[in-house]
Design a protein around this nucleic acid. Structure first.
Length: 504
RNA sequence: CGGGGCGUGGCUCAGCCUGGUAGAGCGCUGCGUUCGGGACGCAGAGGUCGGCAGUUCAAAUCUGCCCGCCCCGACCA
């Protein structure tokens, strides 16, 4: 195979990932430190994610709205834990005007244009939203309030990585208010299940669902649920979070409602989000040394048609026209409730071989070659991105065959990701073994072990092994995991096993 | 915030040590031959050598300061 300029995974997973994201045209580095440019191909994946999630949010009764990018500094500090959690990574707007530099070229900040109250660029929107919710909620009849927004947020990070950690990122953040603790709890779990289903059924990424330890939970939450995915280098990615906020923000922003009995009570809240980090997770979960491997439901190009004309102009016209006709038929076919996403690559000066590699790099799921010999035989040569041999298919059945292959691919990717996770989940009972597993550089998969439930132990383990508690699973991976035992670190009693991993 | 590395056409980099007309490959444009797994020839376009100051007859090259980016560690979706 030709050298595509992508570092093989075996030689450096990090380099492979960076090469792939850039070469597959998902994203680019930008002129701004810590920020990335999401290119059309990468954004198309994000749009597919948005559409699927948005449909699920709407179907469960949520509405979209939009709140300001700027949060008055005083708002952020209304909830003590919350501000403590985010203070270290906030970008702050202090002025509102520039002026010509009196001492030279360019412009400088106009010192007379200092803001009376500085504005924080939202690292998350709880505070600005709850300031509004106060005015929206008076009666139990206003509840539940189920709001989502699609937005960008900024968290000033020291170290960045395309899609996985950037100073600015895109996400959705849901914010809801409920009459009771139980209602809020049900909401947090409903969303967690949407996230799980999306990851598994759309991204073909199996995830653990669980609750975060006290130490890892969201700043200002009562408790935090999460989905956690294992990717190919055996590291874990927190792919989504759903927080039960209790009455913390209701109290901070004085949001009370009158019950049907006439009493005044604070509302119960949730917030939840997934971000463009999902794109990075998707890439790291399935892709290979040739390029992107995308599950068909997340693939901007599900089927690419490569016409082949052997350099003869008169043939080109014929074969491209036939390709377009074939593409139209495919586009009229629905798969997974959407018209097939089909591209004809009629570029004149690239060779077929180049195009094959190019579309493998970009993650097209199925390729159809259509050349003079195929026209004669009323066939097309079909190959799938991974897990299948190249073979001719009659043009009459091609729509069905493409759909069948997409079904296969979607299943195959989920299956192999699940096998991979299971093969890399271990139960460990001694500290020696635990340490040894996490000793080498890089990820080490999931380790399911007993923990005494204290923050001290959690921190000590993290310090000595770089492994953290990813979650306390809702449904044990194995019924045995739910039984009491002894903490792998302290030897103290533990009520159940929890999941450790090195995380992104 | 600590530790490294790097800034030279769009991209990857050579040149710098030892100062003297700014280079290569890829990409791009044009023409021709190719085309079923990354083709080739010929002709072109494209650079205030990160910035500022200094040394010098002369600076991509030497010196100082500044800026930016990437990689590795502590914190985060």
């Amino acid at each position: 195979m030709a050298n595509l300029g992508i570092t093989p995974r075996s030689q450096g997973f990090s380099d492979w990932y960076n090469d792939l994201v850039v070469k597959a045209d998902l994203a680019d580095y930008s002129a701004v430190k810590g920020c990335m440019v999401i290119k059309p191909h990468g954004y198309a994946i994000w749009e597919l994610m948005q559409r699927a999630l948005d449909d699920m949010f709407k179907a469960s009764g949520h509405s979209n709205a939009y709140f300001p990018l700027f949060v008055p500094k005083s708002f952020l500090s209304k909830e003590a834990e919350h501000v403590e959690g985010f203070a270290k990574e906030c970008a702050v707007v202090t002025h509102h005007r520039l002026m010509n530099n009196p001492d030279g070229p360019g412009v400088v900040v106009d010192p007379t244009a200092k803001l009376e109250e500085e504005l924080v660029i939202r690292p998350t929107s709880e505070t600005i939203i709850w300031n509004s919710f106060k005015n929206w909620i008076q009666s139990y009849r206003d509840l539940p309030l189920l709001i989502n927004q699609w937005a960008n947020v900024v968290r000033w990070e020291m170290r960045t990585r395309l899609f996985l950690r950037t100073a600015e990122f895109l996400w959705q953040e849901g914010h809801t208010a409920h009459a009771t603790f139980e209602d809020a709890e049900a909401e947090a779990l409903t969303i967690l299940d949407i996230y799980r289903r999306f990851a598994e059924e759309w991204m073909a990424v199996p995830v653990l669902t669980g609750v975060k330890s006290e130490n890892e939970k969201f700043a200002g939450a009562d408790h935090t649920y999460c989905i956690e995915a294992l990717v190919q280098d055996l590291r874990c990615v927190q792919a989504g979070t759903s927080h039960h906020l209790g009455q913390n923000f209701a109290k901070a922003f004085d949001v009370k409602f009158q019950t049907d009995k006439g009493a005044l009570e604070y509302v119960h809240a949730t917030s939840w989000g997934v971000s463009t980090r999902l794109v990075g997770t998707l890439v790291m979960a399935h892709s290979d040394d040739k390029g992107l491997v995308l599950p068909p439901r997340m693939a901007p190009v599900q089927c690419v048609i490569v016409p082949i004309w052997g350099g003869k102009a008169e043939l080109r016209e014929k074969v491209v026209a036939a390709s377009e006709r074939l593409a139209e038929r495919l586009r009229a076919t629905k798969w997974s409730d959407s018209p097939l996403r089909v591209r004809v690559d009629a570029r004149e000066h690239e060779s077929p071989g180049y195009k094959f590699n190019d579309w493998e790099l970009r993650g097209a799921c199925v390729r159809l070659e259509l050349g003079p010999r195929d026209l004669e035989a009323n066939q097309t040569v079909l190959s799938q991105r991974t897990g299948g041999e190249k073979a001719p298919v009659s043009v009459d059945n091609v729509c069905d065959e493409v759909c069948r292959r997409l079904d296969d691919l979607q299943r195959l990717l989920y299956r192999s990701a699940l096998d991979f996770r299971e093969a890399n989940t271990k139960r460990v009972d001694t500290w020696e073994e635990f340490k040894a597993i996490f000793e080498p550089e890089g990820g080490a998969g999931f380790v399911v072990a007993h923990w005494d439930g204290t923050v001290e132990t959690e921190k000590a383990i993290a310090e000595q092994t770089k492994a953290t508690i990813r979650c306390i699973t809702l449904d044990p991976l194995d019924p045995e995991d739910d039984k009491p035992g002894k903490c792998v670190y302290s030897g103290k009693p533990s009520s159940r096993r929890v999941v450790f991993a090195k995380a992104y």
